[in-house]
């Protein structure tokens, strides 16, 4: 059916395909979804990928600077450049995603801890200053610049940028994102793994880096990969049936093959098979980590679309339990309470 007049809504486009005479037999309300499809697509997937590399590289550089007793100068410099390069595409990607891009600065007209997106906008602002300063002073080789102090000052913002993407997605009503406590952990550890992978590639290519640097960053890459694998298991286990759009849906191949095999399995294989991988193997495993993380973030963002448009998943996400009895026939409680229970913690 092609509507004769212009269609103003994604919602109308989404449901028009589903309304058929046969739908009369479907469960629920003619097989129609309760929720609206997320309007976030490739811009947000790429943003999560890019800001993860940036904030992860920032944290690793600062840690190497503070704890390395001056041993990792080339790695720190590479990490500062990578952090800036990965941060540059972030604002344009976020602005392009808006319905009204020219109003992007409205994000900063208030400070709102309830809204992870608002806090993320502030953290992006907060991180951009130290990232830019550190990369530029590194480029200009300004010896007097207090790198450690500035690096440490930006750490809260870097941690927030690393930790918040999954929390932003989880603070919604989309079952595949919201019915788990580990989406923030999954995307955060994945971001750290991409940063370590990017640094390992840089260390392998940088003629000034030494054997010790390569060995240490390779070790960190392995540890972050293990953490990502653990977070991935925790996510899939805790989400249960809500993870179906990722494990069985359209994005199952990308999620399984990309995030699991390419991002975690193959880099681990490279490590296991060779005790000290050469330059080529390091670069290959780093690139695999990056590709895997991109597949993970792409499939997680897009699985939200399928989750929202699946009426069975909608019902599962809003099913009643002892904590949330909901409103059903015969559940008239008459408490007279209008506001919700206090937030935990």
């Amino acid at each position: 059916m092609t509507p004769a007049t212009p269609v103003f809504n994604q919602a109308t486009k989404d449901v028009v395909k589903r309304v058929t005479p046969e739908a009369v037999r479907e469960e629920g309300y003619y097989g129609l979804p309760m929720l609206k499809r997320p309007l976030w697509g490739w811009e947000i997937a790429l943003y999560f990928f890019s800001e993860g590399i940036s904030s992860g590289a920032y944290i690793l550089a600062t840690m190497a600077d503070l704890c390395g007793s001056g041993r990792y100068a080339s790695l720190i410099r590479d990490a500062r450049y990578i952090s800036l390069a990965a941060l540059l595409p972030c604002p344009p990607l976020l602005i392009a995603d808006l319905g009204r891009p020219e109003r992007f600065h409205h994000m900063l007209r208030i400070f709102k801890p309830h809204s992870p997106m608002n806090m993320g906008a502030w953290a992006l602002m907060g991180l951009s200053a130290p990232v830019t300063l550190l990369a530029l002073t590194e480029f200009a080789s300004l010896r007097w610049f207090p790198r450690r102090v500035v690096g440490l000052a930006g750490m809260p913002f870097a941690f927030f940028m690393l930790a918040y993407p999954g929390v932003l997605l989880a603070t919604t009503s989309i079952p595949v994102w919201a019915r788990t406590r580990f989406l923030g952990t999954l995307l955060g550890t994945s971001s750290m793994a991409t940063a370590a992978g990017a640094l390992a590639i840089a260390a392998a290519l940088d003629p000034k880096s030494d054997e010790e640097t390569r060995e240490v960053i390779h070790r960190i890459e392995n540890i972050t990969n293990i953490a990502e694998a653990a977070a991935l298991s925790a996510y899939v286990y805790s989400a249960g049936p809500a993870a179906r759009p990722l494990t069985k849906g359209r994005y199952a191949t990308m999620f399984r093959l990309g995030a699991l095999v390419v991002g975690i399995g193959l880099p681990a294989l490279v490590t296991v098979t060779r005790r000290k991988p050469g330059r080529g193997a390091t670069i290959a495993s780093g690139l695999l980590s990056l590709a895997g993380a991109l597949a993970l973030k792409w499939s997680v963002v897009h699985a939200g679309h399928d989750s929202a448009l699946d009426p069975e998943m909608n019902r599962y996400g809003a099913r009643a339990d002892s904590d949330n009895p909901g409103w059903r026939p015969g559940t008239s409680v008459r408490t007279g309470v209008m506001r919700a229970r206090q937030l935990p913690g």
Partner: peptide, 25 residues
């Protein structure tokens, strides 16, 4: 929805586990 959820209700614990992983790494 039979029993709608309030998304913000689990935000704090999500932040906590996410930050714990980031700081731990």
């Amino acid at each position: 929805p039979e029993a709608p959820r309030r998304p913000v209700a689990r935000m704090r614990s999500n932040y906590l586990s996410s930050f714990a992983a980031a700081v731990g790494l």
